[in-house]
């Protein structure tokens, strides 16, 4: 079971790295933020997996925080680009 969880964590981490490519490259700000929203979800998945793996309940809180604040970032950014 532990092997499976480690493998899942590694795959998710590689997905985060792949998302970095889109975040860094764009081309539009919305593309970057789309990538960041994806990373919020993937990062949350990663944190809940780690929470089970290391039996640390607080990491599930961290996952919640990540998902919630990623949404805040999206709201802020879409306002910013709508203004122009």
């Amino acid at each position: 079971m532990e092997i499976a969880l480690h493998a899942v964590a590694t795959v998710l981490l590689l997905c985060v790295l792949a998302g970095l490519w889109r975040a860094a490259r764009g081309p539009s700000t919305r593309d970057r933020v789309t990538a960041f929203a994806l990373l919020g979800t993937t990062g949350a998945a990663l944190l809940v997996v780690l929470a089970t793996l290391t039996q640390t309940a607080a990491l599930r809180d961290a996952a919640l925080v990540l998902v919630a604040l990623a949404t805040v970032v999206v709201v802020v950014v879409t306002r910013g680009t709508a203004e122009r």
Binding site: V16, G43, L47, A58, L59, A62
Partner: peptide, 27 residues
């Protein structure tokens, strides 16, 4: 692009702290 990458860094660092057994800092 740099700022977006910096945001991604935040996610990866949170995972790193989780891995280092420092849930307070991950949070």
């Amino acid at each position: 692009g740099a700022v977006s990458a910096f945001l991604v860094l935040g996610v990866v660092l949170a995972v790193l702290w989780a891995r280092l057994d420092a849930p307070d800092i991950a949070l």
